[in-house]
Each structure stands twice: as C-alpha cells, then as structure tokens.
C-alpha cells in the first residue's frame, strides 16, 4: 500500500543545510492504522508532508500502491493540526466539505449526498450552514475530518490533529477516528507527539529518533480492535506497550539510535 523506502530530506538555505530526515524506511499495509511518535523536532511533520507530496524529498522514494509520490496523489486526504487554518473561512461548513468533491468533478446530487453523510458521521449535521470560525476548536477539527471522509480517500494522513483541543474533546475525536477507520476500511497514518494517544489509536507505533530522523523501533500494539477509553487505557497490555514506547521516546530524546543505522 504505502511504502517509504530510504527517505531522506535535507533543507538547504542561508549557506547551511539541515539534515532533517536520514534514511527512513517503513511499510503501511492496506487498511492498517499506524501511528508515528517521536520527540519534538524529530521531523514528524516533514515526514508527513513528504508522504503527502507537499514537500519534495531529497532522496529515497515514497510509493503509494506502487506509484511513486511526486505531488499530492489521488486517493489521499490530509488532516492538518491547524484546523483553524486549513478550513476556508469564507465558506460554510457544508461548502468546505463539498469543495474537494467539486474539484473531483462529482455531480451536484452526489456531492450533496456525500456531504450529508460525512457531516452526519462526525455529528455535525446541524452546523452545516455555519462558518468554521463560529464553531469550537473540536468542532472545526470534525469539519476537517468530515471533509477528508467525504473525499473517500484510500489513505488518510493526520498530522497531530488533536494537539490543540482540550482533553475531553480529544478523547471523543480519538474514538471518532477509530470508528471511521473501522467503518470505512481506510488506511490511516497518524502523527502525534502524545504517546498514550499513539498506543490507544494504532495497530502499530513507529517511534522516530532524534534528528536526523530514522525509525527507532516499530512497535506492534497488542490490543483488540474494539477499544474503549476507560477499559483499554487501564488494561495491562496498554500500560506495557505505553511504557515501552515511552522509554523509546526517552532514548530518542537522549540521542539514542537503532544499532543498525548511523
């Protein structure tokens, strides 16, 4: 499905170059839910932007279904952290969700049906006529998710989407994303700096090293598909996985790197 092979990214500018990503390789299978965590400044966002085709990589390849990613590929949707800035403030919620479908060339009736379904699935049926800035942060992020869902992507990239919402809203949105993933059977790559969140959401957690970034460890999450904020988070396997990931991130912060990589 999604293959990242030997990806490197070096920023040049002002006479010096910064090596952000060094040799990242991983694979995400069809229908998987994979989380990416790492210490802040680990180049998580850079990685995501490279995969999304928003940023040219310096070396290596990103392939989606065997096709190399050179620009934003079809069948991929991105939910950004900055919900307030990724929604078009001059459009209503409904038009925001509808806009990408229009660009896809769908007919009016089909668009309306998809927008309604997507808004209903995130619980925003009643806010369709509002403008994004009239909604709370959590609701704005729901709009962004609805927009992604209506687009019917095969891969959904999420860049720390809940970093800016309060804890309660965050738990709701986490469950929303889990539910949509299971209902729609899409592939999700979820970038976060929150260790608990990564374990709670993902089937696998990729822990990134410090800059220049490599994959420190690919941690499988031994939790059932049916997850619950209370039960799952208090289970032993959750705690064990969480502690393991926590230690890895601490290692990464101290500059620890996997044995086989530079």
């Amino acid at each position: 499905m999604l293959d990242v092979d030997g990806l490197t990214k070096t920023y040049d500018g002002h006479g010096r170059s910064v090596e952000a990503i060094r040799d990242l390789t991983f694979h995400v299978g069809d229908g998987e839910f994979v989380c990416v965590v790492g210490p802040s400044g680990a180049g998580k966002t850079t990685l995501l932007r490279c995969i999304a085709g928003l940023l040219d990589n310096s070396g290596g390849t990103v392939t989606l279904d065997g096709t190399p990613v050179t620009g934003p590929p079809a069948g991929m949707a991105v939910v950004f952290q900055e919900y307030g800035r990724s929604l078009f403030p001059w459009l209503t919620v409904r038009r925001n969700v509808e806009m990408p479908l229009k660009e896809k060339g769908l007919g009016r009736a089909e668009r309306a049906a998809k927008v309604d379904a997507a808004l209903a699935s995130v619980g925003l049926r009643d806010s369709a006529g509002a403008h994004p800035w009239q909604l709370s942060g959590g609701m704005q992020q729901r709009v962004a998710i609805a927009r992604a869902v209506a687009y019917e992507p095969r891969v959904l990239l999420m860049d720390e989407p809940f970093a800016a919402v309060d804890a309660q809203t965050r738990a709701e949105l986490e469950d929303l994303v889990r539910r949509l993933w299971r209902e729609l059977g899409i592939t999700v790559l979820f970038v976060t700096h929150d260790i608990d969140e990564s374990v709670y959401l993902g089937q696998r957690v990729l822990v990134l090293s410090n800059r220049p970034t490599v994959v420190l460890e690919d941690v499988p999450v031994p939790l059932p598909d049916n997850r619950d904020q209370l039960e799952t988070r208090s289970s032993t396997s959750f705690t064990e996985t969480r502690n393991h990931v926590y230690e890895l991130v601490q290692t990464a912060k101290r500059g620890g790197r996997p044995a086989h990589a530079g």
Binding site: G13, G15, Q81, G84, A164
Partner: peptide, 18 residues
C-alpha cells in the same frame, strides 16, 4: 496559548542567501 496560532517558519529562501 494555542499552538494553532503560532505560525511555523515559512519555507524560506531556496538558495543564494540574504
């Protein structure tokens, strides 16, 4: 206070310096 409000540095100057 919200991280949404600080803008990340714009992708700056490709080459040639200041």
């Amino acid at each position: 206070t919200e991280p949404t409000l600080d803008r990340p540095a714009r992708t700056r100057a490709p080459a040639g310096g200041r």
